[in-house]
Design a protein around this nucleic acid. Structure first.
Lengths: 252, 252
DNA sequence: CCTACCTCTGTGGTCGGACCACAGGGTAGG
DNA sequence: CCTACCCTGTGGTCCGACCACAGAGGTAGG
């Protein structure tokens, strides 16, 4: 048992037992070290891991914002894990896109069935308005695009799926941007995406669950095909898997 | 920019550029420190994070197995993130179960459609045989159960979804075990689970995609209801089962 | 009395050096 | 040739120190 794991287990136990809560603070590194009978460097390694896991946020100085504050931020660690494993090329881009399809179509269907009010849809609607600005660069556009998709996933009410979706979008953002030059006509693409977004949101608002899911599926598939990213005949930079994914051909 | 982040970015860049590969080794901590102009403790914090992210595996001693070896182990970090955030109570168990339903029913459908050979199904089949042992404790049984479900997800051929599934199972394993006493009759439950597993595998083997997905959905729902782990709103399982299986299968 | 400044204190961030346990490989001895 | 030993390099741990930062509270000035 390595020493820093003592801290991890202690913190997890304290969280589970309610001794530590969101917004609370970890004891100081020096205090923690003495409590567990280990050295401060060992404590620091554990705190770094907790920080990477999105469980604490550290800050210098004094006051309520300083120190190691307990937070619950699952998106950034998931993003980091995905990014790193994408970098190793042992996580094919095709699998990421396939996962997006599954999660987003499910989310859209679920959101449509929940009969949401205008207030809950407002955030997504405003994002679409901001995306109408013709002066946006592809990068700015895609950041808003990602926000819209993440907001849409959030409407399904499952925080885990929403977090995974947000991570997927963040992790692939760089790859998506790099693929923009593959598009034949950026302006035309943007126009198409805007219209598709409106249609998706309208379907969700109207409670048309299956239509919303189908539109989302077509929307994502269409973009990845146009950008030649993956997995529909594109090369995408990921290792070329020889397997024929039957699901990819079914709906078209 | 904190110093240890230098190492993280360096490693990610080296991975993406192919300068670091799976099976390769990171430079020694002392070397890395000097290369980046930082101290060894800072390097160590970064290595700890990478280890927690499943990117490296550290070992003492010398030889090819010693040092920080590059690996690709996405399951353990995902598991850790889920466990920690479950501990904070900001990740409802119901959402985890819902995610399981989505991923596993999709995986079962996908696996059935791939027309797998006996060799690929062998691992799962052997797990089922081992689960027939009546002398297994609930803990041993559920470990095999988890392995079976993870193996099943793996048959769909999406490493990301398989990794997420494995993480979900690991993260909730403790909670599942704690709920065993809620079951009215453990032996009867185990018999039922065995039969359901056999039916699922048979459906996958026979290419009955929709049946496999439905069986998986009912299997998971049934267990969680019996164990009183995650309440499913008020709806009955049967009526809803039809809604959950319509991810990408319009054409069928 | 009020305000502005300024020190004081506690936080994480970083550093260099030291020692330990471990495991492999080269080497001296049988 | 084989065996046992030591040497070397690895991560694991610890210590003690100093820095930058930001709030708190005292203090001097208005």
């Amino acid at each position: 048992m390595k020493n820093y794991e003592l801290v991890l287990h202690q913190v997890e136990a304290d969280l589970a037992a309610g001794r530590l809560r969101i917004g609370g603070r970890l004891p100081g590194e020096r205090v923690l070290a003495e409590q567990l009978g280990i050295s401060r460097p060992s404590v620091r390694e554990a705190v770094r891991v907790l920080e990477a896991m999105g469980v604490v946020r550290t800050a210098t100085g004094s006051g309520p914002e300083a120190g190691a504050v307990i937070v619950a931020e699952p998106v950034s660690p998931l993003t980091a894990v995905l990014r790193l494993h994408l970098a190793t090329n042992h996580l094919p881009m095709a699998d990421v896109v396939q996962t997006r399809l599954l999660l987003e179509s499910w989310s859209a269907r679920e959101a449509a069935e929940r009969d949401l009010g205008a207030g809950e849809l407002k955030v997504a609607a405003e994002l679409l308005d901001r995306m109408d600005d013709a002066g946006l660069s592809p990068e700015e556009f895609h950041l808003l695009d990602a926000e819209f998709h993440v907001a849409l996933s959030g409407l399904a009410g499952n925080v885990l799926i929403a977090a995974v979706m947000a991570s997927l979008r963040s992790a692939i953002h760089g790859y998506v941007l790099a693929a923009v030059p593959n598009l034949l006509d950026w302006e035309a693409t943007a126009m198409g995406l805007r219209a598709e977004h409106r249609a998706i949101l309208a379907a969700v608002r109207g409670g048309e669950a299956e239509r919303a899911a189908d539109l989302v599926t077509a929307h994502i598939r269409g973009f990845y095909q146009a950008a030649q990213l993956a997995p529909f005949g594109g090369e995408g930079g990921a290792a070329e898997a020889d397997d024929d994914r039957r699901a990819d051909d079914q709906v078209e």
